[in-house]
């Protein structure tokens, strides 16, 4: 390819990104959420803020793993004193556990609504509110129209939205910037110590607009994400008495 042509294409790509809902970071400098090599998968190699991220979960365990992953992301997002809203049908998140991910639980406002429809309404209202840093919503059915409305809301308000979808059926196309699937992996403790190691997740980026989907293994250790390159085959030791 002609170098000038490559330049033109690169420039056009840059022009297209804002039209598709990617915004350059507010402060100008890209904000790194500590995802390491995963961030290469995103356009401009920056985790897209002011956008909607969708997470698919199979069961409650997956949902918790997803919650953990999102909490890890929020740790850097809320570092400079932002507030987040967690909208769900019934409050099940246990705030003290958030301290493990470096979050201050008092900065979260938990909202529970009676119906799916109400959650979507509340989610849209919250996404429009520029005073928030992040909105997490537990929504089962997300239509394309609804996701488009969310996306339009965040484009004005710069809020980052996370949608946790439990057992979505059918897995329809939405206007979200990314679609993730997080599930738990067996933990490993160093030097064969008994007991449970640090939380470990299988992170699948199923869909990312203008990026490269991929699959990674992550561990939350000492308040940071750590990418696991080559996973050793786990040898199950006979159970030992602990504690």
């Amino acid at each position: 390819m002609d170098p000038s042509k490559a330049d033109i294409i690169a420039r056009l790509n840059q022009d297209i990104l804002p039209l598709q809902g990617y915004k350059p970071s507010r402060q100008g400098a890209p904000q790194v959420l500590g995802l390491g090599a995963i961030e290469n998968a995103f356009p401009n190699k920056v985790f897209p803020l002011a956008a909607i991220h969708e997470f698919c979960c199979k069961d409650q365990e997956d949902e918790t793993a997803t919650g953990g992953f999102i909490s890890g992301l929020l740790a850097s997002l809320l570092l400079h004193g932002g507030t987040a809203v967690w909208i769900s049908q019934s409050p099940i998140v246990f705030p003290p556990a958030m301290t493990y991910f470096g979050l201050s639980p008092e900065k979260f406002i938990f909202i529970s609504m009676q119906k799916e429809k109400d959650i979507q309404w509340a989610m849209e209202e919250a996404l429009k509110c520029g005073g928030l840093s992040a909105v997490i919503g537990e929504i089962k059915d997300l239509s394309f129209t609804a996701s488009r409305r969310f996306q339009l809301a965040v484009e004005n308000s710069n809020v980052t939205g996370f949608i946790i979808r439990r057992d979505p059926r059918p897995l329809n196309s939405t206007a979200s910037v990314t679609r993730w699937k997080i599930s738990s992996l067996p933990s490993e403790s160093a030097d064969d110590l008994p007991g449970i190691g640090f939380p470990r997740w299988q992170v699948d980026l199923l869909k990312v607009r203008n990026g490269r989907p991929g699959s990674w293994k992550l561990e939350w250790i000492k308040g940071k994400f750590r990418l696991i390159r080559n996973v050793n085959t786990t040898i199950h030791q006979p159970q030992k008495k602990t504690g």
């Binding site: 938990f110 909202i111 009676q114 509340a122």
Partner: peptide, 13 residues
Amino acid sequence: LSAHKGLFSIQRF
């Protein structure tokens, strides 16, 4: 949100 009739609770812990 609190004016909405479908609201169950708004809590901060």
